[in-house]
């Protein structure tokens, strides 16, 4: 990442800049080092104990966290890769439940004007509830941290899916509906040939928002109460308060970000794959 930090000479740099293939990367090459440099400077001012700089982070966590992501010392002492997998597993369950339920409920609300209008206030209120506010009540109901965490994922992720599915159905262009009406398409034909193809892009927009929210929620939920998972790891490192703990936290945060980004891109990619040809 810091390999190209210092270009050897100004002549060669200008040649580099003019290379059309590399030109798109120029902003990254310039800006990221500046960011890291400022971070390092602030770290130097505040002192490494309070805020480790990027170099300290790499140095402090090189062994075992970066090199061996999948070590398992039993209990909750696991490599970051395993922690992330634990979190991802929870997200997968909660998110899939939310996707199935959300699309179904959204479909019903979209197709029935009556239900759609009647339940709109409930949805509008519930969707603004912060994920963690659900945690205590789900702990009371489920009496189990793991199930509760999954439930929080579910309840956080479901709203954008419901809303987008319903909106997608309402937004089916009149033209298509008119075609269906004139041709008197059967309900089955209508759902298969018009409703689903024209709603898919909306549903995936919802799913994409949902996966972001789900990932936000799981980290927070695990920090509160869980055994294992990346959120737990962060909170555990903080409580341990050892030498490298702040570096561990920063590394974990970095991984959380990367995983969130990948999830987002993954859903977007699937969406593109599934979406019908559009204009």
């Amino acid at each position: 990442m810091t390999v190209t930090l210092r270009p050897p000479s100004s002549v060669r740099r200008s040649a580099w800049v003019k290379n059309p293939k590399l030109k798109p990367f120029l902003p990254y090459v310039v800006c990221l080092p500046i960011f890291l440099a400022i971070w390092q400077v602030i770290s130097a001012i505040l002192g490494q104990d309070r805020l480790p700089g990027p170099i300290n982070v790499v140095a402090n966590t090189w062994m075992p966290y970066i090199v061996e992501p999948f070590f398992d010392n039993g209990g909750t002492s696991k490599g970051l890769g395993l922690q992330i997998l634990i979190s991802l597993q929870r997200v997968a369950i909660g998110y899939l439940l939310a996707a199935c339920t959300g699309i179904l409920v959204g479909g019903v609300l979209g197709m029935s004007k009556f239900l759609g209008k009647g339940l709109d206030p409930v949805i509008q209120v519930l969707r603004t509830v912060p994920p963690l506010a659900w945690f205590p009540i789900s702990l009371m109901v489920f009496q189990d941290a793991n199930t509760s965490a999954i439930f929080v994922i579910f309840i956080t992720a479901i709203w954008p899916i419901i809303i987008n599915t319903a909106v997608g159905i309402n937004q089916i262009p009149d033209d298509y509906n008119n075609v269906a009406r004139v041709l008197k398409l059967s309900k089955k034909d209508y759902i298969l040939n018009i409703l689903i193809p024209s709603t898919v892009p909306y549903v995936f927009a919802g799913l994409r928002i949902a996966v972001g929210l789900a990932w936000l929620a799981i980290v927070a939920a695990e920090m509160l109460k869980a055994d294992g998972g990346i959120g737990y790891f962060i909170w555990d490192a903080y409580n341990a308060g050892g030498d490298g703990s702040s570096s561990q936290i920063i590394l974990a945060i970095f991984y959380v970000g990367l995983v969130g980004l990948s999830l987002d891109r993954l859903v977007a990619w699937v969406g593109r794959l599934v979406s019908p040809v559009s204009r």
Binding site: N178, R181, K184, N193, I194
Partner: peptide, 20 residues
């Protein structure tokens, strides 16, 4: 009282299904 295929409409903006 309702639309039907005996009165087929050719819509202004074609109204073709883009995924077909």
């Amino acid at each position: 009282t309702e639309p039907g295929p005996d009165r087929m409409v050719v819509f202004q903006n074609y109204s073709l299904l883009p995924w077909r």
